[in-house]
């Protein structure tokens, strides 16, 4: 009997190992590529841990290619689109939940199904006509396509489950609708705002397709900058892998630290932008 439970445990441990290793090995290999000189990256059989680490790869990336500029662009685009998305989407989620107009959420659902490129053609023409190209505004505005639906969707779910009694009591005490929202409903739904914020940040940060069309030389976000490194500027693997790791590191850290919120948000809405 003891042997059997022992065997079962070993089986479970093995299964977990098999499941987790593709993800872990991938990121370990990514780190390894980013810390090796060209000689080691071209070696056969491949080397996992080099004798000398090429920290220079990271310095190269950070110092050249206007990388800091692109990092700043990414922060501005994601930051602005997320804040605007929350500003617009949180009250909307509240209104929709209280009006019991959840049917209108079908617009959000169809937005979720629409390929990102179908937004790009008309908005690209619009931005050209408005003379906005060359600034970060086109990207900030189009990233609302990602952030607003995520926020609305998640907030509807949260406001639907918050109790109405408190709000009704506040109304009887003479509070306006806005005061009720601001001082009663919003504090209760705070965890929902956190979830919406995190997911909006991640999917906006990761977006690539809007950038390749709308970004100019000065207005590239990080994913576009990294892609352009492959095609034009860099051919050696070390700095490329280092750049890729820098781009995705903020998101990976967020995933590790806010894992519970991300899981809650994704299983509640399963909304992904773009």
């Amino acid at each position: 009997m003891m042997l059997r439970t022992l065997l079962q445990r070993a089986g479970l441990a093995f299964a977990v190992l098999v499941l987790v290793s593709p993800a872990v090995l991938f990121f370990v290999w990514m780190l390894s590529l980013s810390l090796k000189y060209e000689v080691d990256n071209a070696a056969y059989p491949p080397i996992l841990i080099p004798e000398t680490f090429a920290w220079k790869n990271y310095l190269d990336v950070l110092e050249s290619n206007r990388f800091p500029q692109f990092f700043l662009n990414s922060i501005v685009v994601t930051g602005a689109a997320t804040l605007l998305g929350l500003l617009v989407g949180v009250p909307a989620g509240y209104g929709i939940a209280r009006m019991k107009a959840t049917k209108s959420a079908i617009v959000v659902l169809i937005a979720r199904m629409t390929p990102g490129l179908s937004y790009l053609i008309p908005l690209f023409l619009l931005f050209q006509w408005l003379g906005l190209m060359g600034t970060l505004w086109p990207q900030i505005i189009i990233h609302l396509v990602i952030t607003v639906p995520i926020v609305i969707w998640i907030m509807i779910g949260y406001f639907e489950t918050t109790p109405l009694e408190l709000e009704e009591a506040a109304v009887i005490d003479g509070a306006t609708r806005w005061q009720v929202f601001r001082h009663v409903a919003l504090p209760i739904a705070k965890p929902g705002v956190t979830v919406a914020f995190i997911l909006a940040v991640i999917f906006s940060w990761n977006n690539f397709v809007f950038g390749i069309v709308l970004a100019g030389r000065e207005t590239r976000t990080l994913p576009v900058a990294v892609y352009n490194m492959i095609s034009f500027e860099q051919l050696s693997w070390g700095p490329l892998a280092a750049a890729a790791l820098i781009v995705t590191l903020p998101v990976l850290l967020l995933t590790v630290f806010a894992q519970r919120q991300i899981v809650a948000g994704l299983t509640a809405g399963a909304v992904k932008g773009g």
Binding site: V20, A23, V247, L254, T255
Partner: peptide, 12 residues
């Protein structure tokens, strides 16, 4: 750890 691939930046 298992969830990391889906959150990572696709281009990277």
């Amino acid at each position: 750890l298992f969830v990391m691939p889906m959150m990572a930046t696709p281009v990277a």
